[in-house]
Design a protein around this nucleic acid. Structure first.
Length: 552
RNA sequence: UGGGCUAUAGCCAAGCGGUAAGGCAACGGAUUUUGAUUCCGUCAUUCGCAGGUUCGAUCCCUGCUAGCCCAGCCA
């Protein structure tokens, strides 16, 4: 059952009442950075809606500003869209329409609907007026059509410096909608474009270019975010005055916000440029590539976005919801295994020295098709440091002196002695095991409250685990407003914790992007950048939910 | 304080004049060799507020209030 939302309703009506007989959407990123999960929402809405109505979706690079764009971003964007599971019908570049756009601008001039302005940037701003006061007309506003044509051509021919002249639409300097106060539609920029090279030195502005791109491609429903709502009258003006055959309809939806998540390309780029993160695909980044490297699956992202809905609201979705969908997705597909993040050695004093045995373990008790594996067990093992307390509070089910617990897939052990170093730190535990309690034998003689995961010390494989927290926390960001600080001053110092531990020997050949559940720790992904055959590196995708709270 | 937009549970969100879907979170309880999962149950007599229209209003009208967006030669 597909969810109901206002855009779907509009499209359905357009189809039913004959306003449209097909649906064409487009995903139009500017190649000036990597895609983030907010873009994923746009992708899913555009491709999803077109799919549902047997329409088509194009990928179009909105590359009208050579100063900020780069081929690297074009490539990354294509990869991310594909990885999310979508195939575009046609691939376009706005820059391929520069000739057409130029001609349409000339048409506007000929119709007396556009003029070349000599005002500089500051003057244009002053003449624009304010939110509450109307603007005033530029002294160059009433140049003759011939002069405008001549000047515009000279702009194109490179006879002026950057900023010396612009082409403006002639609309209404007193409009309450600032976008209609003679918006600039072409500026001079002597810059090399990633696609058109040095062919052009004038480039169309978004407000002029975007509606033309949509119209040229026959887009029916041009879906964008709400900050473009005020541009809609201008969008329609451009389509009409440029006499475009197709008339796309712009519809705006609320952008995706997630708690404790930076969702601004500008800020994300800042984090990358200043080296605060390890590139656009740093697992802490909300980029598609970052989420992928962290271990998120495309289907989890799709589920999340779909369940999160489409509306015009501007609220923030709880990050817990994103985490929920990746747990849900990996629950049956990720093998469940044991990893020790912060090891504490345990010697089982009554286990024969030099001996070891193999124990059978299910790979996923909720998915029997995943089969079983054999894991070694012997006299010395590692358990988690936090699974032992010398002086536990009430309701602590794990190990403490005199207490007996179950070792997952193995035996019951009881803690007898605590070995400490000179500083009083617990460095080793001496326990005894009970042969009769072996897993799978159906032993019911007595019960224990806790089950611990463990790894055989002799055969354990060293591994690195990377644990993440949000890069910035909303609570701390609130102070930013009060204290006039940059958001970089609020980077969470605990956003990355690296620990060295152990994994089961049968995990020694893991490959990048392999995903596992380590019992009680959560879901992990083999890092695609730092993991090596000698030393696997695991990124924690998400922890398991836990109702356990240590109250001291 | 000009214009545009939005207000439904702690969060996201259906609902389109006939008496409040769903998901996340939370909280009980059962099962459990992951304090996980699973299961069962609880969670808006009321839809920002105040009026009005109507037999009947979350839905239509009016007026308030709150929040978001707009003064790039960015997109």
């Amino acid at each position: 059952m597909e969810q109901s939302n206002f855009i779907r309703t509009i499209i359905k009506e357009d189809l039913e009442n004959g306003k449209r007989d097909t649906v064409v959407t487009r995903f139009p990123p500017e190649p000036n950075g990597y895609l983030h999960i907010g873009h994923a929402k746009s992708i899913i809405i555009n491709f999803g809606l077109a799919d549902d109505f047997n329409g088509q979706t194009n990928l179009r690079f909105d590359d009208t500003n050579p100063l900020k764009e780069d081929q690297e971003y074009v490539d990354a964007i294509k990869e991310d869209v594909k990885w999310l599971g979508y195939d575009w019908e046609e691939l376009h570049y706005a820059s391929n329409y520069f000739d057409e756009m130029y001609n349409r601008a000339v048409l506007l001039i000929k119709k007396g609907k556009a003029y070349v302005d000599d005002l500089n940037q500051d003057e244009i701003r002053e003449y624009r007026g304010t939110l509450t006061e109307p603007g005033k007309e530029s002294p160059y506003r009433n140049r003759s059509i011939e002069e405008n044509l001549d000047l515009f051509e000279k702009m194109k021919n490179g006879e002026y410096e950057n900023g010396q002249k612009v082409l403006r639409a002639k609309i209404d300097m007193s409009s309450p909608n600032l976008n209609l106060r003679d918006p600039v539609i072409y500026r001079i920029s002597h810059a090399t474009h990633h696609n058109t090279g040095d062919t052009w030195c004038i480039y169309p502005m978004y407000a002029f270019a975007h509606p033309l791109e949509d119209a040229i491609e026959g887009v029916t429903h041009s879906l964008c975010t709400t900050e473009f709502e005020d541009q809609r009258p201008l969008y329609n003006w451009v389509v009409a005055e440029c006499e475009m055959e197709n008339q796309p309809q712009q519809i705006e939806f609320g952008r995706l916000n997630i708690t404790n998540t930076v969702m601004s390309k500008r800020k994300l780029k800042q984090l990358v440029d200043e080296g605060i993160v390890d590139g656009w695909d740093d697992p802490r980044m909300p980029t598609i590539s970052g989420l992928r490297r962290k271990g998120y699956t495309a289907s989890a992202i799709r589920e999340f976005v779909q369940e999160t809905g489409v509306s015009k609201g501007s609220g923030a979705v709880d990050e817990m919801m994103l985490e929920h969908y990746v747990r849900e997705d990996l629950k049956l597909s990720a093998p469940r295994t044991m990893g020790i993040l912060k090891p504490l050695k345990v010697v089982i004093t009554n286990y024969p020295e030099g001996e070891s045995e193999w124990l059978e373990a299910e790979n996923n008790p909720e998915n029997e098709e995943m089969g079983t594996r054999q894991i070694p067990f012997s006299r010395e093992i590692y358990i988690e440091q936090e699974d032992f307390m010398e002086n536990p509070p009430k309701k602590y089910f794990r190990l403490f002196p005199g207490n007996e617990v179950r070792l997952k897939h193995a035996y019951f052990i009881k803690c007898n002695d605590v070995i400490k170093d000179e500083d009083g730190n617990v460095v080793e535990l001496h326990c005894t095991y009970d042969v009769e309690t072996k897993s799978g034998t159906g032993f019911t003689g007595r019960k224990v409250k806790g089950t611990l995961h463990w790894v055989d010390a002799k055969s354990a494989v060293s591994a690195e685990f990377r644990l993440y927290e949000p890069l910035v926390l909303d609570e701390q960001m609130k102070e930013e407003a009060l204290e006039d600080k940059d958001f970089l001053d609020y980077i969470n110092p605990n956003s990355l914790e690296v620990v060295q531990g152990f994994i089961e020997p049968n995990l020694k050949d893991v490959q990048p992007q392999d995903k596992f559940q380590f019992f009680r720790h959560g879901y992990f992904n083999v890092d695609s950048k730092y993991s090596t055959p000698e030393k696997p590196v695991f990124n924690r995708i998400v922890s398991l939910k836990s109702s356990f709270k240590l109250n001291k």
